[in-house]
Each structure stands twice: as structure tokens, then as C-alpha cells.
Design a protein around this nucleic acid. Structure first.
Lengths: 210, 210
DNA sequence: AATAGATATGAGCATTCATTCAAGTATTTC
DNA sequence: GAAATACTTGAATGAATGCTCATATCTATT
């Protein structure tokens, strides 16, 4: 497990059998993470839990870090698909509706397995393992959503700035709603509140420079 | 480095010499993290870079994880002090001013060493290593700030909900502003924008239940 | 049926790493 | 200035880990 060199790449699974092996490996990591903690996630144990030989593991992953990277990628792509779907299904909706739909999609994606998401963020190293790509695509989604609805806004604000704020708001609040929501607050209420917060910002008149 | 058992506790530094040793150890971890990456952070290397013997390290830390925990604690306490100071210095200020001050303090704290903060969040495991405590104290600060200024708000909203939203907004946006701010956006502008977003939410009329 | 390519196996190697401990050196206390 | 306490040292240990490779089995293709 070296940080420095990019290890040589490996075979890409082409048969179904092989794809199952890869999936089994990623699933095994999750199971071990949840049941035994991060330190128990050794390559040998991964293979064991996946019901696969250690040799097979190294057919598809050049080193241990690559497994974590793949796990993050898989997770991120899942969320991304949800976002893109919401974006397409609401191409004709009002800003109001679209924001609600995006928030809904984000929360839904994070609610499927909050524990996993939490573990991935706090225990599994993920420097630039798709996280940056995801942030970019999320920004892209909101940029599109907002830019095409500029008419509905009391404008004047720079688009990049708006997108920056909205993206961070939605990401953090949805994540928080899925994992650390106060007990009084229902998921439905949380969704409403998050959308309301975003819309309040979008509609507010920009602050004047001091 | 075991996840399971809580390792037996160690000597607490009482002489200045010993406190310097502990500080040197934590500083060494940061240096290695930045220069050589997480995987290079071994106990032996920490001791070496700290200019301290490996034996001394184990006088004060029961195991490797404890070092990470201490590092997180030190960082979190720094941010916390900044927040508390802002809270006290603006005890008599308007909500507007106080929010600005809190945002300013948060950003300032994260701007001192953005790279470190980023590394701590993405590479160094930190499950429940002060992170939870920090979230609680941050919520406490905002709860106090908002509850004592309820008069300034177009109220009707549940306090816990408000605090939940505001805390996540400020934390994520300040963090983002310090580490991933788009190049067009100056720090000063970011501060204004974040404060504006928070105030827009606070002043907006609560959304109605569907 | 035969061939080639893809996939699977797992014992074992080289290395690394976290941690201990017995012995020494400062500092404080009385 | 002696006794007690706090601190430091670093070679050594042993368990664990990441990963390779020679061999075997499956699947697809012709």
C-alpha cells in the first residue's frame, strides 16, 4: 500500500464471472468495515469474506488503495445517477420543483445506507478518489438547473458564486439529514426545510459589498 | 493499531520537557502527512521526525490511533476557541453582526492551514474523535446565538430545526470557502455570501407542510 | 474437439510495523 | 545531596500484511 507510485494497472473483468468477483470484493469490504472495523480490512480478509482467492483480488486491483478507490467510485456513481435522473425528469419543472427534486434525490441516495456513507467519509481514506469528480458533476447539475431558470430569480448574483453556495448547502444538509438528523425532525420535514433554505438564498437580494 | 479494545491509558506529561515531546510528536505527524502521505505515517517514522525515541512516544500514547485522536482534538479545540471568542465578543451584537462574526471566525480558523484540515478529513481516520463533540459545541453556539435573538426573526420555526440547518450550512460553506473556493470568489466575498445565505434562511417564512 | 484466452487458486515470501522493556538520564522533592 | 519521580532511549521482537507466481480450471471461439 504505497501512496507514491501509481501501481501498474490490471485486467478488466470481461466475463460475468469476473464481474461478480469484483462486486463480491467490494461488498466484502463493506461487510468487514461494518462488522469488524477498518483495521480488519486486510487484503487477505477481503478475499476470504468475498469467497474469492487472494490471487483473484490482485487480478483486478493493483493494490489495496485501488480497492478503496473503486468503492468510493461505485458509491459516488450511484448518487450521481440519482441526480442526473432527477435533472432529466424535471427538465421542464419550475426552479422550486427542481430544487425539491434534487434534494429529494440526494437524501434518498444517502438514506439507503447512511452507515456506509459515514464510514466511507470518516474511516476510509479518499483523497481525490472520485470525490472531486463528484463535486464537479454536482456543481454541473446545479449550474444547469439555475442558469436555465435565471428568469425566476431576483438576479444580479454571479452564477459561479451561486452554484458554489447552493452545492455546498445541499450536499452538507442532505448528508446531515441522512446521518445526524435530530430525532424531532422527520425526513420529510428535513427535505422541506433544506429546499426552503436553498430557495430562500436564491431569492434573497445579494448582499452589498462593504 | 487495534480498533476493538480501548488500550490502557498512559502517563500524562507534567514537565515542560514532556509537553514539548508530545507537541513534537503531533507536529511530526502533520509534517509526514503533508510531505510523504498517510501511508508513511508509521510510529517509528513519527518518532524519528519528531526527534524523539519511539519509547517516548509510547509513554504518552497507548497506540497509534490515540495519536490521530489527539491530533483531531487539538485541531477541533482550536476552531472551538475561535467560535467561543466570537460568541463572547459579540454578546451584545445584532443577529446580523453575530452571524457575520461567527462565519468570519470559522473561515479564519480553517484558512490558517487548509491543507491540514483537508488531510485530516480525507485521509486520517476520525470516527468519533472529537468530531461529534465539536458538532455539539458548534450547535450550542448557534443555538445560543439564535435563541437569544428570537425577536429579530419572523419566527414560527422550531429552534432545533433552525440550528440543524444553520450549523450544517456554516460548517460546510466555511470549509468549502477555505479549501475549494472558485478562483473568482475572494475570501471577503465568500464571507459576505455565506452570511447572506444564513440570514436569508433565518428570515424566510417557514415552508408549509404538504 | 481443439485451442486460446480469461479467470481462479493459495501457499509462501519479503517486508514492514506497532509495540515492549530493561537500562539510562534529567528534574524535582525533602 | 540523596531519594524519588519523571522522562528518555533504541535495539529487539514477533505477529501480520501486502502481494507474487506457478499451476489449474472455465469459458468462448472456430
Amino acid at each position: 500500500m504505497t501512496t507514491t507510485a501509481t501501481s501498474r494497472s490490471r485486467r478488466r473483468p470481461v466475463q460475468t464471472r469476473a464481474r461478480q468477483t469484483v462486486e463480491a470484493i467490494l461488498d466484502a469490504v463493506i461487510r468487514i468495515l461494518k462488522r469488524e472495523g477498518f483495521d480488519a480490512v486486510t487484503t487477505n480478509r477481503i478475499a476470504e469474506v468475498a469467497g474469492v482467492s487472494i490471487g483473484s483480488l490482485y487480478q483486478y486491483f493493483p493494490d489495496k488503495r485501488a480497492i478503496f478507490a473503486a468503492l468510493h467510485r461505485r458509491h459516488v456513481e450511484e448518487v450521481d445517477r440519482a441526480i442526473q435522473t432527477a435533472l432529466i425528469e424535471n427538465a421542464a419543472s419550475s426552479l422550486d420543483h427542481l430544487i425539491r427534486a434534487l434534494v429529494d434525490a440526494m437524501i434518498h441516495a444517502h438514506t439507503r445506507d447512511p452507515e456506509l456513507h459515514e464510514l466511507l467519509m470518516t474511516e476510509v481514506p479518499h483523497r481525490a478518489d472520485g470525490t472531486v469528480d463528484f463535486a464537479m458533476r454536482l456543481r454541473g447539475a446545479f449550474r444547469l438547473a439555475i442558469a436555465t431558470r435565471a428568469g425566476e430569480l431576483s438576479n444580479g448574483r454571479d452564477l459561479d458564486t451561486t452554484v458554489f453556495v447552493v452545492t455546498h448547502m445541499v450536499d452538507a444538509l442532505c448528508h446531515g439529514a441522512a446521518t445526524r438528523r435530530p430525532s424531532h425532525l422527520s425526513l420529510a420535514d428535513a427535505k422541506r426545510e433544506i429546499s426552503a433554505a436553498v430557495l430562500a438564498y436564491l431569492r434573497a437580494v445579494p448582499a452589498q459589498a462593504a
